[in-house]
């Protein structure tokens, strides 16, 4: 009972804060504190959004963005989990790869734009390369950590019972790595969205990002902000979905149980 009321309270406070933010967004341009030509009032952005919702190009772009994001995230997850379990389990591999990983990881994905365009042209694949490159790291590092975090007693027990490698990966490594993987996945999901839209904006592959560029080149400022709002909503929706998924798959885990007991 107490839990639901706190949860409701949190939602109410969140909504109030956001409403105040929107009010500010409406008032700043209206009062002339910022030039409405460059930051139109929130109501104008919403009017532009309403227009966008009736255009098939907008829905096609939204579909392209979500598709690129999903494919990129799927590739990054499969790659990250497979490599992570391998590297996490084999100490030698870990020692040999960590310097390379630490070198590659901080390279900003955006710096790869010229390379991607050279290889794939101004197409979806170029953006996909950026998305995969940026979002594979959080998954990989989390899975490596998770696999290394296997309870040593359990590991020794499994070894003395001569469990097969497959069984050990399934019964020990994977359950131990799962909470880490979920965290990695959630981080990767938002990074993938950022890179998907950045790629579209810079490379011109189809999607919301390219529409933002076209709106900007067309001096359609309210439309541009409407699209930015859409990008923000996408991120918000994504976080909510992943948090719910984490809660559902990890209901047995201490971190989730603690939250429920509070």
């Amino acid at each position: 009972m107490r839990r639901t009321s706190t949860a409701r309270g949190r939602v109410v406070r969140g909504v109030c804060g956001f409403a105040a933010f929107l009010l500010l967004l409406e008032l700043l341009p209206r009062t002339g504190v910022v030039n409405p030509a460059y930051l139109p009032p929130f109501s104008e952005m919403m009017a532009a959004l309403g227009r966008l919702l009736t255009e098939p190009e907008f829905w096609a772009a939204l579909g392209n963005t979500l598709l690129g994001w999903a494919i990129g995230l799927a590739i990054a997850t499969v790659l990250g989990v497979a490599l992570g379990i391998l590297i996490g389990r084999i100490a030698v591999l870990r020692r040999y790869t960590f310097s390379t990983i630490e070198f590659l990881r901080p390279i900003p994905s955006v710096a790869l734009v010229p390379l991607a365009v050279l290889i794939f042209g101004a197409k979806m694949q170029s953006t996909l390369l950026l998305v995969v490159y940026a979002s594979v790291w959080p998954v990989l590092l989390q899975v490596i950590q998770g696999v290394r975090d296997v309870d040593p007693v359990a590991r020794d027990t499994a070894r003395s019972f001569r469990f097969s490698t497959v069984t050990r990966v399934r019964r020990l490594d994977w359950p131990s790595a799962l909470p880490y993987t979920m965290t990695g996945l959630r981080l990767a999901a938002s990074i993938a969205l950022i890179l998907e839209i950045t790629g579209e904006l810079l490379i011109g592959s189809p999607g919301i990002g390219r529409l933002i560029f076209v709106a900007q080149a067309s001096a359609a400022v309210p439309t541009m902000y409407a699209l930015v709002v859409v990008a923000g909503l996408l991120g918000l929706g994504m976080t909510a979905v992943f948090r719910a998924a984490q809660r559902r798959t990890m209901h047995w885990h201490a971190s989730e149980r603690r939250e429920a007991a509070a």
């Binding site: 365009v117 042209g121 904006l201 490379i203 390219r210």
Partner: peptide
């Protein structure tokens, strides 16, 4: 195919 810059085209 619409792109965002001439060099990319």
């Amino acid at each position: 195919v619409l792109a965002s810059s001439g060099p990319q085209q």
